[in-house]
């Protein structure tokens, strides 16, 4: 079972190392981790997707809380959050097959952001499911390179306390 933890931390050097090292030494597996500064420049938000099949998520959260630089942790439930990930696909596309690839991009409301002699680069955002479906389709053409940001997420406005 996957959990999405939204972790508010102090924006200080070394905080990412502390968090990453905690996960490694306690044997918790990170699926993805995205971090960036928030509306308050002294704070950063980490969105961490954890595969908590073996370790109870409660223990992960409690250990994280013990880090002095960690301020707040939310375990976001699928229905209660807005989550997004951005993916860049560089796909094989000879001139005669370009339109097919562009069509797929359109269906997924993705954007073509670069065109090479034999390739197209597509920028797509969305939930994990959507991006996985798109990746499946593009695989048929040959994905030369792929980069993803990892998931970022916020609690839905209606769930705010």
């Amino acid at each position: 079972m996957k959990h999405t933890l939204s972790v508010l931390v102090e924006n200080k050097p070394g905080v990412l190392t502390r968090v990453a090292s905690l996960f490694a030494r306690r044997g918790f597996n990170i699926d993805s981790l995205a971090v960036g500064v928030t509306e308050d420049p002294t704070l950063s938000r980490m969105t961490i997707v954890v595969n908590a099949a073996e370790t109870p998520i409660e223990q992960v959260a409690k250990q994280l809380h013990k880090l002095i630089n960690v301020i707040k942790i939310q375990d976001l439930h699928p229905g209660d959050m807005i989550d997004r990930e951005l993916v860049l696909f560089k796909v094989n596309a000879a001139p005669e097959r370009r339109h097919e690839v562009i069509e797929i991009a359109n269906v997924f409301r993705a954007k073509v952001v670069d065109v090479g002699k034999n390739s197209l680069t597509i920028e797509a955002t969305g939930s994990g499911d959507k991006l996985a479906a798109m990746e499946d389709l593009l695989r048929a053409y040959g994905i030369k390179e792929l980069a993803r940001t990892g998931k970022i997420a916020l609690a839905r406005g209606s769930k705010e306390s």
């Binding site: 109870p56 409660e58 223990q59 409690k62 250990q63 809380h65 013990k66």
Partner: peptide
């Protein structure tokens, strides 16, 4: 005093 010990 350490919540992480409880239930560990």
């Amino acid at each position: 005093i350490d919540p992480a010990e409880i239930g560990k």
